[in-house]
Design a protein around this nucleic acid. Structure first.
Length: 303
DNA sequence: CGCATCCCCTGCCTGC
DNA sequence: TGCAGGCAGGGGATGC
């Protein structure tokens, strides 16, 4: 998936299609994604109004007129495709009125056999959820129980909000023996970072992914300088990615050709063997595996 | 509690 | 050309 920038871009794309509109009919083509769909999913959504579309961590939250929240998670390969009106000619949708709102598509286009859910809105627009690996999921949760729900109760701060600062990082890092990479990817610490943006952030901050997380903790009563250095780089990377329309890998393409260029700006991610792009650094980007995930970093300038 | 490992699933790429 | 294995941006469960 889609890390924070990609999820936010999907949310923005869905907003005009969903907010202020009612679900007319929901077509669920299987019983589950990562989890089973909620009981009577289609029936409970039919006729309800979407009052707002928000994002928390990597979740999209559609608040409904019924007092429930439709929680959408894209997993690794989920994507939404929306069209503003029923399409009379599917062959022309590629450059017509269909907009690919998601990211990270295998191959050159989505395979309709992985179109698992179709939301038909009153007024004629349609939103289709496609997800080959089915790591995504959809839940219906009562709004008043959202904060206490296990998925949300322990979530860390939003990296683009005021909650993220050097003091917070230093305090959360105290005593943590895990490596810095795992610490930054922990959604209970910072909500929304994933593999790509953690790699890019650590490179910009000049910090090794293998360093112990606790080395960000307070030193002489103040957050360590490393924590101070990290915070603006986290924000920089996420904002740059948002400005570029997010990152997409492999030979995906957007139907409207407008989004997903940040992969052109990767300094280390997926660049194993390449020259470090930090001015003056002559290091070579290396790949290693941490917690089962690939890490890309420059051993010369990340300490 | 913290942390590592494995798992869910499909598809693409690499090497034999 | 076929096939096995590795790898993929997610999070959760389990066991130590």
């Amino acid at each position: 998936m889609p890390e924070l920038p990609e999820v936010e871009i999907v949310r923005r794309g869905l907003e005009p299609l969903l907010v202020g509109r009612r679900f007319a009919a929901i077509e669920c083509r299987r019983e589950d994604l990562r989890f089973p769909f909620p009981e009577r999913f289609a029936a409970r959504l039919a006729g309800t109004l979407v009052t707002s579309l928000e994002r928390r961590a990597k979740y999209i939250l559609a608040r409904l007129g019924t007092g429930e929240v439709l929680v959408l998670h894209l997993g690794m390969t989920g994507r939404f495709t929306g069209s503003r009106s029923p399409d009379p000619c599917p062959a022309k949708t590629e450059r017509g009125n269909t907009h690919v709102l998601g990211e990270y598509v295998y191959g050159s286009g989505s395979d309709p056999k992985h179109d698992h859910v179709v939301f038909r809105m009153a007024g004629g627009s349609t939103v289709t959820y496609n997800d080959p690996r089915r790591f995504g999921f959809m839940l219906l949760i009562a709004e008043r129980g959202l904060e206490a729900h296990p998925l949300f109760a322990g979530l860390g701060v939003e990296p683009l909000g005021n909650g993220l600062n050097a003091t917070y990082l230093a305090e959360r890092a105290r005593g943590r023996r895990c490596d810095l990479k795992a610490f930054l990817m922990d959604q209970h610490v910072i909500a929304g970072l994933g593999n790509i943006y953690v790699c890019e952030t650590l490179h910009r901050a000049g910090l090794s992914p293998k360093r112990a997380a606790r080395t960000l903790a307070k030193w002489n009563g103040a957050p360590h300088e490393r924590a101070e250095r990290l915070v603006p780089e986290i924000r920089h990377v996420l904002i740059a990615a948002l400005d570029a329309g997010g990152s997409t890998l492999r030979d995906y393409r957007h139907a409207d050709g407008s989004a997903g260029a940040f992969q052109e700006s990767f300094a280390v991610y997926d660049r194993e063997g390449g020259a470090c792009l930090r001015p003056g650094c002559r290091g070579i980007v290396r790949r290693l595996v941490q917690s089962g995930r690939s890490t890309f970093y420059c051993p010369a300038c990340q300490r």
